[in-house]
Every structure is written in structure tokens, then in C-alpha cells.
Design a protein around this nucleic acid. Structure first.
Lengths: 225, 225
DNA sequence: TACATTACTAACCAGCGAGTCATTAAAATC
DNA sequence: GATTTTAATGACTCGCTGGTTAGTAATGTA
């Protein structure tokens, strides 16, 4: 049995509220966790800090999520993994040239992920994945693979319709993904010098990269890498 | 005064060697530190592990480097910062078109940094820079700024000679740096799926990116971003 | 062999952070 | 109002790691 405790804080008449809001807690904790994970990384984010930002104590955090790793997984599902179903449907229904489809895909990705806080999760996984193999595997399964599948479907459509050359699809996927990943990493790195604030307009950069890839895709095989 | 210690290990007659090699230690420690920092990141690398890999005890490590941060700085200088003087001279003496100069610069960078372990230091700083502001500042001063200066000199030469359009040099620098940084990050990330081993041939990717940038540089201003 | 120097070691310390649990108090129910 | 239920708390444990230092032994010198 632990030693007895003091109640010195009883002398303070205006106690902080101790509200019971079972419904709202998980969402608030997930939001706080996203903020801090993106800001400081997984390892460097302390559970108590997440709890504090969500307005609860550390004990409460572990009441809703069994561990820090499970909390992170929940953040990933909420912000990335859980949204692929909807995106798949959206692209399934797309009508128009596949080139436009690819342009639309990259633009919409930028608007819904790249320019949001969620992009920090990708940077985080690329940074710390090796130190947390289970999280890395989870992320690959929930985010990387669905993303690749989506892109593969688009590229395959282009080839099937004769709009694209029959390139090596795996190569092409990486050619599309590379500039998007780069932007996420760049945005969240501390290496952006202050004297270069105006550099690297994301939309323009992405558009240029898209045209480069499409140029390669519409020519002879192997030119897309 | 601390409590007295045991000497139970005296009973073991075959003690591990306790060699005195003052000259060799720093180099061995730096090599071990580079390995581990690149492999696990700065925060996740334990000082004792670095010492063990270098074949000494933790106490010896702190005999040669006053702190983990100073050890890291020494690694950065040894592998990146201390080599810019030589590189600057090399490019000062370059003869030929500036387009070739830029191609040569990117290729030589890949051979001497990108494909070596040293590239992991860049990934590390982009990952953990925000958590260690002093290291980030040091890295910017020792690596980022010299690198940008070198690139700026090349681009300026191209403009002065009328080979390049008078583009915004800061934009152009980032257009050149982006693919190199991306390759370093990609190479050291855990997000590379096993089913895509053959994808993204670095040399080919870099060459393609170089031509894209040069295409922009030789046209009207502003097209290089 | 005796003594001095110093590279090296390992036990130690202090602080930190994930996860636990006995206790508290806000609701719900009677 | 009395009683039960359970959301919430925060003091606690425990393991880990950067950094310290008293002590050890390899080497040099006589």
C-alpha cells in the first residue's frame, strides 16, 4: 500500500474545475496530440504535455489511450488513414483525361494534407520511423500503401486508355510522390533560412513537378524516373 | 566522499585490455558517433553506446568531448562543414559552361555527400532541429549557409556571363537544393517500401531534376521556382 | 624496484518521463 | 438527502541516460 498523501491544496478555495466530459475528451486529446507530435516529434513529446494542452491530467490521457504509441496511431488514423476510403470513391468517379486527374490529385492532396498540420505526421514518420518500428509498420499499412494504391490506379488508368506510355508504374509512383514528400519535409524543417522566406512557392513548385512527370509519362517507357 | 566500491571483478584474470591511445580516440569516437547519430538520430543515441562502439567507456567519451552536443558539432565539422573551403577552391577554378558547372556540382555532391553516411546528418538536422535550437543554428552556420553561398556563386556566374536569365537567385537556389535534400531524406527514411526496391534511381532522378532546373534558368525570369 | 603521471574506468547521481493506482468528487440513481 | 457509480486526479514507482568523479592501471623515469 502506498504512503498516505497530503491535502494541502484543500486550503485553496477556488479549485480548478474537475469537469466530467467523457464524450469530448478523446477528440480534444487527439487534437492536442497532433499539435505536439507535429511540433516536437514523437519521442520528444511528453504525455503530460499532451494532457495539459487538452486541459486534463496525465492520468486521464491514459484512461482513454492505453499508451503513447496507441495515441499516436489514433492520431494517424484520424488525420490520414481514415480518409482514404472517401478519396478512393472520389477518384473512382472522376471523369476527364488522366493527366487532369493526376494534376487534380496533386492539387487536392496539397489542399487537404500538404498544407495542413497532418503533413507533419509524414515528416515525423520519416524522421523517427527507424526508432519505432511498430509505428512505422502501422503507418506504412495505413497511409503509405493506400496512397500508393490510389496513385497506381490513376497511372494504370492512363496506360489502359493509351494516354500514358506503358512505363514502370513503381518508378512513376515515386516520381509523383517525391515532390509531395519533399514539400512536407521542407515545410516542417528548421533548415529554412529566414533570408529565403519567399522562396519555393509550394503550389508553383508542385505544378512544375507535375508537368515534368506528365512530360515523362507521355513519352517512351522508362523516362518517368 | 562517495561510498567505497567492490573489486569483485579482480577474480577474473583475463581482463579486457585497458589501452592508452590518446591520439586515436577522438577519431574513433567521431566515427562511432557518425554511425549512431545517422542510424538513430541525435536524441535517441546514447552516449554510452557511442563509447562502446568506439571501444571505450562512457567516461572516456566525456574526457574528449565536453557534452553530447559538442560531440555532434565535431561530427558535423568533420564530415560536412570543414570541407567547404576545398570545394570552394575547386569551383573557383572551374572552366566551362555554367550549365556544366551546375551539373558537375550536383553530381559531385551526390558522390561525396549524398551517397555517403554524411547525408544522414542533414536528415537528422531537418528532423530534430526544432528540438535542439543551438545545434540547428550551428548547422545552418557551418553547412547550410556555405552551401547556399557556393550555389549562389555558380548561379551568379551564369547570369553574369549571359548564360542564365536574370532569375531570382534565392528561388533558383531552392530549386537546385530541393531534389538533393529530398534524396537524402528519402534514403534514410523507413518509409521506403520493400516492394519498391528498384524505384527512384538517385543518379537518374538527380540528372532529370538538373535538366528541369536548367531549362527554367535559360528561359524568362521567374520560371525556375 | 620505487615513484610520478595521466589515460581510462565504472560506480554514482540527478533529473526526467511513461505508466499506475489509491483517492476524490461530479453526476446518476434511489 | 443518501447512496452508488465512475470520470478525473496527482503522487508515486521504475527504468533510463547525460554527466561526474574517486579510484585504477598503463606508461615513463629514476
Amino acid at each position: 500500500m502506498p504512503t498516505p498523501r497530503f491535502f494541502a491544496d484543500k486550503i485553496c478555495p477556488v479549485r480548478a474545475k474537475r469537469e466530467r466530459r467523457k464524450e469530448a475528451r478523446p477528440g480534444e486529446l487527439l487534437a492536442a496530440a497532433l499539435d505536439l507530435f507535429v511540433e516536437k516529434g514523437f519521442a520528444a513529446t511528453r504525455a503530460e504535455e499532451v494532457a495539459a494542452r487538452a486541459g486534463v491530467s496525465k492520468g486521464t490521457l491514459f484512461l482513454y489511450f492505453p499508451s503513447k504509441e496507441e495515441l499516436f496511431k489514433a492520431v494517424v488514423v484520424e488525420n490520414l488513414g481514415g480518409r482514404f476510403a472517401e478519396w478512393n470513391d472520389e477518384f473512382e468517379a472522376f471523369e476527364g483525361t488522366t493527366a487532369d486527374m493526376l494534376r487534380y490529385c496533386m492539387r487536392v492532396w496539397w489542399e487537404r494534407v500538404g498544407m495542413t498540420k497532418a503533413s507533419g505526421l509524414t515528416k515525423l514518420m520519416m524522421s523517427e520511423g527507424t526508432n519505432f518500428p511498430e509505428l512505422a509498420e502501422f503507418y506504412r499499412k495505413e497511409v503509405v500503401r493506400p496512397g500508393h494504391t490510389l496513385l497506381r490506379r490513376i497511372l494504370q488508368r492512363g496506360i489502359d486508355r493509351g494516354e500514358f506510355a506503358p512505363v514502370d508504374i513503381d518508378h512513376a509512383i515515386y516520381a509523383v510522390v517525391a515532390p509531395m514528400v519533399f514539400l512536407m519535409l521542407w515545410k516542417h524543417s528548421a533548415m529554412v533560412c529566414v533570408d529565403a522566406e519567399t522562396s519555393l512557392d509550394p503550389e508553383k513548385y508542385l505544378a512544375t513537378q507535375a508537368e515534368t512527370v506528365l512530360y515523362g509519362l507521355t513519352r517512351q517507357p522508362g523516362a518517368a524516373a
